[in-house]
């Protein structure tokens, strides 16, 4: 399943990150890597970007980037 298809307030584990290198490094910096569990907290107006919670950190990324992250 793709991260963008995650339902509100559901939790999943990341199995693959295919986005561009710069974003991948950024995500790694804040502790989002393969194997971490991630929860969809809310969506912004117009359903984009999406806010996630991961290890107690709240952050937001765009839907198009979520399409490149696979979760389980």
């Amino acid at each position: 399943m793709l991260l963008s298809q995650l339902k509100l307030n559901y939790q999943a584990t990341i199995i693959n990150i295919n986005c561009q290198e710069a974003l991948k490094n950024r995500l790694k910096d804040i502790g989002v890597e393969i194997g971490t569990s991630i929860k969809l907290v809310r969506t912004a107006p117009f359903n984009d970007p999406l806010e996630f919670c991961c290890n107690g950190i709240y952050f937001a990324i765009r839907k198009s980037d979520c399409d490149k992250i696979e979760v389980k």
Partner: peptide, 8 residues
Amino acid sequence: NYFLVELP
């Protein structure tokens, strides 16, 4: 460009 913002 990608976008990533932390919500402190």
